[in-house]
Design a protein around this nucleic acid. Structure first.
Lengths: 197, 197
DNA sequence: CTTTGTATACTAACTAGTGAGTGTAAAATC
DNA sequence: GATTTTACACTCACTAGTTAGTATACAAAG
């Protein structure tokens, strides 16, 4: 039972994903996506009613896999909650050292489409970040942290900052620094009884 | 003695600045900038050798004024260093509530040009953020904070995160949350003798 | 003092190419 | 027989950048 042959629609999304992430959604033409997918432009427009639609599908396709990665990195890490949070940043720092790394696709797309506030892709990006923040908040709550929500938001802010600054400076170490700051904030919020000595 | 009539070059940069910031550098055509500046496209190309050049001039023109604002907000705030840092975030939150706010022009431009790593505008953006970080670090050092450099970087990360996340969510309160986190980090780093009670 | 030369600042019209999206008819796949 | 895909020509708006030429000012040469 090997992997099913991807449908045309899936191949188009996969091609769009690679191109949009590496070049930016505005820099990539619909023709380029169709070529990369090995499909005519007309076929692409059979599956997606517009380029905006395709951009939305690109981000939609990254939502769940991204969250799954974060959850895995968190659960597989040893130590306290603070350590587990820092582990996510560490894994991101490793990715950021890859030459093809271009920051966060959600944030970059929202920056590119900042003049189209109601764009479906922006809504998807916003929802994605909210889901991540919500999950983090749950993790903190289950550790008895009182300020779980603002703390989760602060951690997300550090991560988004590291995405943005790391991309601007082309320096993956921003992600580690952000992880250290997140560690400090989370550790300070953990109830004294359970804080690691 | 009044303000000197702006030169053609200055008018072009002013027009570019408004358009590039509000629409994004890729979304705005050279023609649109020329129209807004009230000059022909050929005149624009007389003063700037390419669109890339114009984009660089746009960010160059925002570097010093931006830094001056931060310095002013910092110096005019009451209280400890931590309070002064938080004051910067508070002022940014106020700006972020303006309907025309579109995040940080430097970060958004770097996101738009992520596929052109050597672009002059990206270098200018990177240098701008480094200058801000360096100035912050000096402020921390003069307060006897030992970890001035990493602390400055953490504060910058929070600010950049608030720019990115605040833009994606269209919610200025991210800037206040980031300010609170920055306050906590700075306050924890201040030598005990001088920490506010 | 008038002519000629030259540098600056500017304009209108244009080139050559790309952008998203469509029309249509025929072919392939299910 | 319905859905999916191709081939490809086409529209129309827009894009970065250019060709060729004009207005003004100021200085050197006659």
């Amino acid at each position: 039972m090997g992997p099913t042959t991807p449908s045309t629609r899936e191949r188009i999304i996969a091609a769009a994903s690679k191109l949009f992430y590496s070049e930016g959604v505005r820099a990539v033409s619909v023709d380029a996506v169709a070529d990369k997918a090995g499909v005519t432009k007309r076929t692409l427009y059979y599956h997606f009613k517009s380029k905006d639609d395709l951009v939305a599908a690109y981000l939609e396709g990254r939502d769940q896999p991204n969250l799954a990665l974060f959850r895995r990195w968190f659960s597989e890490a040893d130590g306290s909650v603070a350590d587990k949070v820092r582990s996510i940043f560490h894994h991101l720092a490793v990715s950021a050292r890859h030459p093809k790394w271009k920051g966060c696709g959600f944030l970059r797309t929202s920056a590119e489409l900042a003049n189209m506030p109601g764009h479906p892709a922006i809504k998807i990006g916003a929802a994605h970040k909210k889901r991540f923040e919500g999950w983090l908040s749950e993790m903190f709550e289950s550790e008895g942290i009182a300020s779980a929500e603002p703390l989760a938001r602060q951690v997300v802010l550090l991560m988004d900052g590291a995405f943005a600054a790391g991309l601007l400076q082309r320096d993956a170490s921003y992600m580690e620094t952000a992880g250290d700051a997140a560690f400090a904030l989370v550790n300070a919020a953990v109830p004294t009884k359970t804080r690691r000595r």
